[in-house]
Structure formats: C-alpha cells, structure tokens
C-alpha cells in the first residue's frame, strides 16, 4: 500500500489546493468543522467526528438561486450562476460519506435532479479518513457502517503509525494518488493499517423500520416529544437532514434574490398552510416526523437508513432526546395484537 507520511501532509494538501478547494476538518473558533485548507488553517484530524459535518459543502446553509425584479406589469427572473470550483473533501469519515450517499438519493436519484446540488457533487472528490477511535456518541457500526473504511469514497486513507495508507477507489481517486506520487509524497509500506475500536454505543435497528409502520398512532411519541424544545439543533447538525426553504431576500420593493436555506421539520411554520391548517401542529407530530423519516420513510423510499450513527444529534440535544434511545425503545415497544 502507498503511504503518506504525516510530515508530508501539509505538502500534499498544498499541492491539491493548487487545483481545487480542499476542505479539511479544522479548528474554527474552537469548533472542529470543515474549512478550505490554507497554510493558516489548524487541522484537526483527531475529532471523531468533527462537531459540524461537511454537509454545507454540497448543500450550503444559504445560497442564491435567482434574482427577480418586478416593475409595473413586468417581472423578470435571472438565474444566479454558481461558480463551482473543483472540490476535495479531505478527512471525511465513513458516517459523513454515507450521509452524502443519502443526500445523493434525495437530490439526484429521482427526476428532476437538483441542478445546483448535482453541479457541486460532480465537482467533488471524497478523500475519506479511517476513524479508528470512535467518540462517546458514535454508533455508526450499529447503522451498518465500517468506521475504518467506506466503499463509496474516491480515496480511502488508513491510519498508520506515522502517516496514512492511501488507497484509491475510483478513477478520480487514482488521479489524486498519482499527483501525490508524482511529487514524491508517497512511499510504499507493508505496515497493516490500524483497526477501528468498537463504538461504545450500540443499538440494534434491525426490523424497526417495519415496526414503525405499526407505530404511527402509538402513545410513545407523546412521551418522547414531551421535553423537545423544537430548537432544530439536531436537524442542523445532522449530515443527512436535507430540508430547505425557498424565500425572498428583498433588496427593495422591486428587486431581490430568491435564496435557498436550510429548514427543519422541528419548526411550526415548516408545514403550516395558507388558511392556517397545519398537518403537523404539535411537538408530537414533529418529533415523530423526524424519527419516522430517518428510520422508516427514508428506508421505504430509498432503501437505506437516514441515520449514519455520527452521534452529533445525541451530543448536542439540549434535552437529551437520543436517537439511540429511540431505536432501542421502539424495539422494545409491545404492539397490541
């Protein structure tokens, strides 16, 4: 296997950053999140996982879609052309690679595709980093993932004593590896890569998607939702939550921009209709929607869990509503008949 020594990492990133925006996990104001690499960036490849996922790279928190104008009888709409540079996400873990596959299902798998997402996705190369020491809230193995590697990355980095094993998995990955090799940044090694330690959190979601079909009206949701603040932190941190709003950013009475920004099923206004009817009027309905979506509706529609076990919602929920508890408790519920 080829290896990249830790001492060559900065050179490797600098080389790739010459031709692409290279997003790396970095300490930004004390929080580990993805940031475009520059020599000034403080890399943090140890965070498992980074506190903020790389979701925003493919689905920006806000983006401009088009400019509009309305003068008298005339209205115009003009697309805001997005500049999408070649992009590399370096150091993404299995959980977040899997989350991108979930986003691909939503934005690309059914016609019509989402053009802006498709453009960004097509420009993006994934360089995954093995995650060998899972954090206290991690449970990716319960959701069927392998923290040490992911099949759907372009390059897989393995953990070695003093560097990274480098394994290309796609033609795109081969290109990156070839560029690093060409500059003499890679050596051959026979060192076996580090294996992942077991996640300390473990649940068994097997069969709960089917069980949830029978649980829509179950009193469990009242109980679960009782303490929820509907703050939406879970949805914003979740690497698979994709819901968005389209709204007008008015420059003046006549002109403005239509923006897309993240939205969340935790908010009342999300589903309220003109005239006032709201099909999900209370906390119970909204909390139920979130977990049903992750564990039943998404599997029904796309054939995979919409939870990758990254544990971010577990870590940050202010009232400790934990999806691992939900999976466990749903599994334990006794159904009538």
């Amino acid at each position: 296997m080829k290896a990249l020594a830790k001492k060559n990492l900065a050179d490797a990133l600098a080389l790739l950053a010459g031709q692409a925006t290279v997003w790396v996990p970095a300490k930004v104001a004390g929080v580990t999140r993805f940031a475009p690499w520059s020599p000034a960036v403080t890399l943090d490849l140890e965070a498992t996982p980074p506190a903020v996922s790389p979701k925003e790279i493919l689905l920006p928190e806000t983006e401009s879609l088009y400019r509009y104008s309305a003068y008298g009888m005339d209205v115009t709409f003009e697309a805001v052309e997005q500049e999408v540079p070649p992009t590399i996400i370096w150091g993404i873990h299995s959980c977040d690679v899997q989350a991108i596959l979930c986003q691909d299902d939503v934005f690309l798998s059914r016609e019509p595709q989402d053009a802006a997402y498709a453009k960004r996705r097509a420009a993006t190369t994934l360089v995954a980093l093995a995650c060998t020491t899972p954090g206290p809230d991690c449970f990716c193995t319960s959701m069927g993932l392998e923290p040490a590697e992911h099949a759907s990355t372009d390059v897989q980095l393995h953990i070695l004593t003093d560097g990274y094993g480098v394994e290309a998995r796609t033609a795109r990955g081969e290109e990156i590896v070839a560029r690093l090799a060409e500059k003499g940044l890679l050596v051959e090694t026979i060192e076996p890569p580090a294996k992942a330690q077991a996640c300390t959190r473990a649940v068994n979601p097997e069969g709960i998607d089917k069980k949830l079909v029978e649980m829509f009206e179950h009193p469990y949701w009242d109980e679960l939702a009782a303490t929820c603040l509907n703050c939406g932190a879970c949805t914003f941190l979740c690497p698979t939550c994709h819901c968005f709003d389209l709204t007008d950013h008015r420059r003046n009475a006549h002109e403005g921009t239509k923006i897309r920004c993240w939205d969340a099923c935790m908010f009342t206004e999300y589903t309220v209709m003109a005239g006032g009817h709201n099909p999900r009027p209370g906390k119970k309905e909204r909390v139920r929607q979130r977990f049903m979506h992750k564990l039943r509706y998404f599997p029904e529609r796309y054939g995979k869990w919409q939870c990758t076990g990254c544990g971010r919602c577990v870590a940050r929920c202010p009232v400790h509503i934990e999806i691992t508890d939900v999976i466990k408790e749903v599994g334990e519920v006794t159904l009538d008949g």
């Binding site: 934005f107 059914r110 389209l246 589903t271 929607q289 979506h293 998404f298 029904e300």
Partner: peptide, 10 residues
C-alpha cells in the same frame, strides 16, 4: 420532492 415538507409518510 426535495425540500421535505409535503411528505405523507414516504
């Protein structure tokens, strides 16, 4: 089918 809010189940 992407912004999320009009789902009824899947």
């Amino acid at each position: 089918g992407k912004c999320g809010r009009c789902n009824i189940g899947h």
